[in-house]
Simulated scan of single mutants.
Amino acid sequence: MDDLTRLVAVEDVRRLMARYVYSADHHRWDDLAALFTSDAPFVASTVDGSIQARMTGCAEIADRLKARNQADSVLIHHLFSSEIDIESPDSVAGVWAMEDIVTTPHDGEMHGYGHYRVRFTRSDGRWLITELHITRLRLDWTHPDKENRS
């Protein structure tokens, strides 16, 4: 694979992840789910391996995220320091450092720090997420009663 083709693939998956976080922040769950293959697993866990959420495929991802994030919630996602490996012309794996803040009127605020580990495939010239795993290394909570815990 030549350098230009590699650079285009890297930029394409970076833009796909930018669409992912933009869609999440703006509660565009159908747009976000459309970035995944029909059978893609989406797993969120803490560093100790505790599973916070597990979903599979576009439909379940959209439905579960809609149910979990009401209109009055505020989501903020930041991605940093991507490390992207081109495995083949149609297969890419990447790791992004991440930070997210989720605020709801009833549950308070969750502030997470960790990594996205993502696998992508290209089909018909379009990159899609085939697997996404969020591992949060740290979670800080501020509850409506202002009690703080880590």
Rank of each mutant, 00 (worst) to 15 (best):
V95I: 07
C58E: 01
S88P: 12
H78M: 11
I51W: 13
P41G: 09
E99N: 11
H78K: 11
E83V: 15
Q52Y: 02
L32G: 07
S91M: 05
D30P: 00
V43R: 12
E60Q: 14
L79H: 03
A97P: 00
G94L: 04
M55D: 14
A24W: 06
I101N: 11
T56P: 01
A53I: 13
V102Q: 11
D30V: 03
A24S: 12
D72E: 13
A40K: 00
W29E: 07
I51N: 14
S23Q: 09
D85P: 05
I84C: 08
D48V: 02
M98E: 06
L32N: 09
N69G: 07
S50R: 12
N69P: 02
T103M: 09
I101M: 14
I101P: 03
T56R: 06
S91C: 05
I84A: 11
V74W: 04
T103A: 00
I84E: 08
D90A: 12
G57K: 08
D25M: 01
L79F: 00
S88H: 09
M55L: 15
I101F: 06
I86D: 02
E87M: 02
T56M: 00
D72F: 11
S50V: 05
E87R: 04
A59P: 07
I84F: 05
D72K: 13
D30G: 08
K66V: 00
E60D: 14
V102A: 15
V95L: 04
P41Y: 10
K66R: 15
A59G: 12
D72P: 08
E87D: 07
L75N: 09
A33Y: 08
D63L: 05
I76T: 12
G94Q: 04
Q52I: 06
Q52N: 07
S50C: 09
A59I: 06
W29K: 01
A62C: 12
C58F: 04
S82T: 02
E83G: 09
R19Q: 12
A44W: 03
V21Q: 14
P89T: 03
S91E: 11
V21M: 15
S45Y: 00
N69Q: 05
R68D: 13
S38P: 01
W96A: 00
S38G: 08
L32E: 10
P41E: 10
M17Q: 10
T46W: 04
G94T: 05
I61P: 14
W29D: 08
G57V: 06
P41S: 03
I86F: 01
D72H: 12
I84H: 06
V102N: 10
E99D: 15
C58I: 03
M98C: 14
G94W: 04
M55Q: 15
D31H: 08
F36E: 02
F80K: 12
G49H: 00
L32S: 05
E99T: 11
F42V: 06
D90G: 02
D100L: 00
Y22K: 08
R68T: 15
S45V: 02
S81L: 14
D100P: 01
D90W: 06
T37G: 13
M55N: 15
Q70L: 15
R28I: 08
E60F: 05
D31R: 02
S88D: 02
R68F: 07
K66N: 08
W29Y: 13
T56N: 03
E83M: 13
D100C: 10
P89E: 03
D48A: 08
D90L: 11
H27K: 15
D63K: 10
E83N: 12
D63M: 00
E87P: 02
